[in-house]
């Protein structure tokens, strides 16, 4: 039975009247901003141009497609989101939006985004966007996340697709440059999330999510961070020698990789006692640095695109 409290909250279903901002929160706006940035880099680095409205429509619906997959992820993960401090205030566990409403919103937005991207650009980009949504919701959220500690490794592909979708929106195909941009984010995701898992340890174990920290221990996670960071280095450097790279990108990649590897090395040299003594200072720094790393490298790709249009750049 449903009753309405004086606060407007519906007792029984536990759902209050959602405002517009609750639906915006459902789209994971911070993740969307990263998607917009990396997809934009893929689009601007591409060797062809789109008319301005088609360009804007493409970037808008790539972002909304990513947001739709975020809404579907929140619908599926509402039970574990409620158990984790970091996610307990999301609209569904907070009781602002009913799960069914989030499902309908996410599905409608997914279909709409794919169709609009198709109409604005081409079917290759639309198919890639549809696959990205499918991969994030079905393969990662419904499949891997609660099953295997490798969830982040394979699931990271979902977050790596946007520059490839952006590239495909411009060119109608996928090339080596687009694949390397994908591979860069794919290799970056595990050390980024494992650094987070090191200092959010209670969250994942409370929710029963088999993060590497929970299943293999923290020492093993520290080693994994270093290994994946080292594996990421050649992928990020390889981009410098493709048509989207150049001296600016190469310089940025060398500096940022040195910083990331140094951070990962410091993480592996520490134990839990040291980390707890300074409240995971190094782990938090590496997590923040990893965000800067991606921003700088994709920013360098944008700079190179600008230089190329004036006839400079390229190695």
């Amino acid at each position: 039975m449903t009753d309405i409290r004086s606060s407007g909250e519906m007792v029984g279903q536990g759902i209050a009247e959602p405002g517009f901002s609750d639906f915006v929160q459902l789209l994971k706006p911070r993740v969307m901003s990263l998607v917009v940035f990396t997809a934009l880099a893929g689009m601007i680095a591409a060797p062809v141009h789109l008319p301005p409205v088609a360009f804007f429509t493409a970037i808008l619906f790539i972002a909304l497609g990513a947001g739709a997959s975020g809404a579907l992820n929140m619908w599926w993960d509402a039970d574990i989101d409620a158990l984790m401090k970091r996610t307990a205030r999301r609209p569904i566990p907070a009781g602002m939006i009913a799960p069914g409403e989030a499902l309908g919103f996410g599905m409608a937005l997914s279909v709409g985004s794919v169709i609009m991207l198709w109409l604005a650009t081409n079917w290759v980009a639309a198919a890639l966007l549809a696959f990205t949504i499918f991969f994030y919701v079905v393969v990662y959220s419904m499949g891997l996340k609660r099953l295997t500690p490798q969830n982040i490794v394979i699931g990271g592909a979902a977050g790596a697709f946007p520059p490839m979708v952006g590239w495909a929106a411009m060119t109608g195909s996928v090339s080596l440059e687009a694949f390397l941009m994908f591979a860069l984010i794919f290799m970056w995701t595990p050390p980024h999330f494992w650094a987070l898992a090191l200092f959010m340890k209670e969250d994942y174990s409370n929710a029963g999510v088999p993060m590497l920290t929970v299943t293999h221990g923290r020492k093993s996670t520290r080693r994994h961070i270093l290994v994946y960071t080292v594996l990421m280095v050649p992928v990020s450097l390889a981009l410098a020698f493709t048509p989207v790279g150049g001296p600016v990108y190469l310089t940025a990649a060398v500096v940022m990789n040195a910083g990331f590897v140094w951070g990962a090395w410091r993480i592996v040299m520490r134990d839990e006692g040291m980390a707890e003594a300074d409240r995971y200072k190094v782990e938090k720094k590496v997590f923040s640095f990893s965000l800067l790393y991606l921003f700088v490298l994709f920013g360098a790709i944008l700079v190179e695109a600008g230089l190329h249009s004036f006839g400079y750049g390229a190695l």
Partner: peptide, 28 residues
């Protein structure tokens, strides 16, 4: 009551989004 404020924000948001979508479709 807060419930009306939230409902108004949602209705206004939906209206603006639909208007923007129509304009974008036209321009495209």
């Amino acid at each position: 009551h807060e419930i009306y404020r939230r409902r108004f924000s949602r209705n206004l948001g939906v209206g603006v989004v639909l208007g923007a979508f129509v304009l974008l479709s036209f321009l495209l």
